[in-house]
Amino acid sequence: MRIKAAVTILIFLAGITAFATFKTVTVCGEMQQLLQKTEELAESGDFPAAHEALQQFRALQKRSDPWLTAFVDRTYRFELRNNCASLENYLREDTLEDFFADSERVLITLDIISDSMVQVF
């Protein structure tokens, strides 16, 4: 009985480890793409489209927050969450310089989270 339980736990752990790694890499990559798209649109002056892309980025970030809480170090999560929250204001105020500065920080945080997972491959 205990052997079966141990084997089940091992299979479960292997599964959850693979899932967490895959999910982190995928979501981080998706968030990076959306943020870069927002940057490109903001740079071209299409602020409504840029704002919409930014909203999609925020929605994805909020959706992924619960499992990031389970698997990612709190320092990175908090950094990502705070930077993402401050990004929203910039496009409305057309303060591009601040927007690009903040988005750069978000990208760095995403890279850190993603790298910590990718390095194991």
Partner: peptide, 25 residues
């Protein structure tokens, strides 16, 4: 380390316990 997610600790502990059971078997 409060920054550490609980899974980072729970997973190794579960792994060790499972290994212990399998090794004793």
């Amino acid at each position: 380390e409060t920054d550490l997610p609980m899974t980072a600790v729970a997973i190794p502990i579960l792994l060790i316990v499972s290994l212990e059971v399998l090794v004793s078997y």
